[in-house]
Nucleic acid binder design. Structure first.
Lengths: 254, 254
DNA sequence: AAATATAATTTGTCTGTACATCTTATCTTA
DNA sequence: TAAGATAAGATGTACAGACAAATTATATTT
């Protein structure tokens, strides 16, 4: 009748029961009692083994899902996918344009806009195929009239070239414009950051000596099929821009 | 006796009931029925209002916790902390040393180790107070015998200076050594990346021309009290190191 | 009036039951 | 034998009840 227990938390030692259970199961996965790739016991089996209710078992397993050790599918069962708990640090972004990290009142001015086929060097840096057809938009980002922050080359798919006109109208990031206009969603964004030196033709526009140090940031935006729909290459002269990453230890890791 | 319901999922339309409920409450938070800073109704009140069990309510609220809209404290209640669901992109790190992004077989060789008081310039770059007492460890990271990757200055608290001897013994990252030896945990890691140029005294050690471009990475490790227990400043000559960030759109955002 | 004890409130943990839904194995039939 | 229907098994959703633990409000005492 659902009221046979005497004390809810019979736990004598530390925290809640499901946490104890999660710890035990976690240890067992680590020591390969349940090797990666195999199936874990069913909920009912765990209930019997530990003499707890399904709630407690599920609560324990939920924690193991959160740190990426197991994977569950309705009807099927529970499979071990990783020996050691993943996701130790998480970077949270509150708004979508924290991705770019430029203050909201910077402005992008388009210098040129033309279709290109990737040469070997460009293909290398942006991570594409040589000869691939893209549309290249050269632009400069300004803090105000006379303060250029960075030179940015934006590469978009030829079928999206018409958005070049829209850039600079407001402060909306380019990939946001694409998302809205062409109904694609950035599921994954990859960023590469490395040091470089400014080439002559860009140097004068940025007001620095040719060959002076720059922070290069390459951003690749992928849709849900893994297809890259935008690549941007930004070159920041030394002293004008700092890229910050803030990582928090994920709380749901014990 | 706990068996009065006829159908478990009375949901006529779409998904599970708790998801519907979460959607409704989410909309209400967005439209400021429950403004940020105020308290949401109690579980029991929500149970009555929607004629559902506590399970369903808690399951709905769990989702709102996950996307950072609400915050709950036992005994107290539920407070709204954000109007719009946060965490749009999440960076997952599988292992703790993915933070450093050096392949596991690189080696750190200590050049010098001495106590210092921060001068104005150093205080600025590492984000500390001028005159503060730290222990500075100068080192170089090598891929192999003759291939230096970067110059790294590590700053640790004076009380942790003895670990300087341990560095380079194995491939364990410095902050991991501190965590083990002194029982502190890195709850937050902040990284700043920017462009710089290599100073003369370091340039010859790295085998590059003085003033050549570098990628500078400043890492700050904080414990649970927000106290910084390690700072490292790494300077990578151009072409030897790329820092990559991979962001995934968080799934639990509807 | 201030400090302390008590009660009420609210979320957290836990059990038991029941049915839904998806998956997989088994059996049946063409 | 292969395709399709059936049954069994596993996880998902949902209900109701009970006690635990933390917080807050109330009453009591000094």
């Amino acid at each position: 009748m659902g009221n046979s227990q005497i004390k809810a938390s019979g736990g004598n030692s530390s925290g809640p029961r499901y946490q104890e259970l999660a710890d035990i199961l976690q240890t067992e996965v680590e020591s390969e009692v349940y090797p990666v790739g195999t199936r874990m016991p069913t909920e009912l089996e765990l209930c019997n083994r530990f003499s707890v209710s399904r709630f407690t078992v599920r609560e324990a397993l939920r924690r193991m899902i959160d740190n990426g050790m197991i994977l569950r599918r309705q009807g099927s069962g529970t499979v071990v996918v990783s020996k050691n708990p993943t996701t130790m640090f998480v970077q949270k972004l509150n708004t979508i344009d924290e991705l770019l990290q430029y203050s909201h009142d910077t402005q992008l001015k388009v210098k040129s806009s033309s279709p290109i086929e990737l040469d070997a060097e460009t293909a290398q840096t942006i991570g594409g195929e040589t000869g691939e057809a893209w549309h290249k938009i050269e632009s400069i980002r300004y803090l105000d009239e006379k303060s250029p922050i960075c030179w940015t080359d934006v590469f978009v798919r030829p079928e999206h070239r018409q958005l070049a006109d829209r850039i600079g109208e407001d402060t909306t990031p380019v990939f946001m414009v694409i998302q809205k206009e062409f109904n694609v969603v950035a599921e994954e964004v990859t960023m590469d950051l490395f040091a470089g030196s400014m080439k002559e033709e860009k140097a004068w526009a940025m007001g620095v000596e040719p060959g002076s140090p720059t922070l290069v940031i390459v951003r690749r935006y992928k849709d849900k099929n893994g297809r890259i729909f935008e690549i941007s290459v930004s070159e920041h002269p030394a002293g004008r821009f700092t890229f910050s990453v803030d990582l928090l230890r994920s709380s749901n890791v014990d």
